[in-house]
Design a protein around this nucleic acid. Structure first.
Lengths: 136, 136
DNA sequence: GACCTTGTGAGACAATTGTCTTAGGATAAA
DNA sequence: TTTATCCTAAGACAATTGTCTCACAAGGTC
């Protein structure tokens, strides 16, 4: 019975992001980074959030010198993965294609990205199914 | 100051989905549909959820005969829109393209969808930017 | 009328989230 | 060593979410 992955509330996510960016941080360092990013939290709030993240196994801590140093124990990719899968399951009938279509329609890409995406798609489809008749 | 849109917890979303499917429903009808879909909720729970949804302005109710009849006041598209935007903002630096790329890599599409997506992209890019050199 | 069946209203209650206060241990500075 | 700092521990507290219980009203049934 795999217990389902812990939820990551937004506030905790913001803290986690700091750890991803910096690799590791003490409470105070995280606080400062967050301040710079516009989050007006108190020291204790950040400490609580790191604590909760540790409780969920999403960060680890080890005591160096005075303060605890926290490091992420989950990657940003992993978190994205979870969020996306959950979104697809909940609102797109488990069909990632529907989400992609929706995205393209409602959130237009810039040309550079669009091309990049198309390249990936071409790769995925493989030559046989392409409609590049001219090449024949 | 537009007050930010209300959050829609998962349980409420499940109820909302029933209304989208059916167009409208009483508490009992919603309960039954949910039961069929595997949700083992009590009548009161569904009533509470509909009530909360109404409090948030996401459904309306009018009393026909005995029971209240609830109808969605927000479309599924709207909800999807919100969730996707929030995801993009929170985990993809506001760049929908990054999400699309991620999706394609981690959740492969079936060929039909892939082609459909490519068609949309081609439309979006317009002829000028295509790399169909052969046409020149 | 006395009784069910359905439905609503009003809350209860625990878990999670968002934020902070306060007390006390270590460390560094005077 | 007295003070001023910085850190953690412990928990407070309100809002939101997930679920439910219970009392009571309105409509049928015998």
């Amino acid at each position: 019975m795999a217990k389902r992955p812990p939820t990551i509330p937004d506030s905790e996510l913001d803290v986690l992001k700091v750890l991803w960016e910096r690799g590791h941080a003490t409470v105070r360092e995280a606080l400062e980074t967050l301040r710079e990013a516009g989050r007006e939290w108190s020291y204790a709030t950040v400490a609580t959030l790191l604590d909760r993240l540790e409780g969920k196994g999403l960060v680890t801590s080890d005591r160096r010198e005075l303060a605890f140093v926290y490091r992420p124990a989950i990657t940003d990719q992993e978190v994205r993965q979870r969020r996306v899968s959950s979104l697809v399951d909940k609102l797109y009938e488990g069909e990632p294609g529907l989400l992609v279509l929706h995205l393209l329609k409602s959130h237009p890409l810039n040309p550079v990205q669009a091309k990049e995406v198309r390249a990936v798609l071409d790769g995925m489809l493989g030559d046989s199914s392409k409609k590049r008749d001219k090449d024949r």
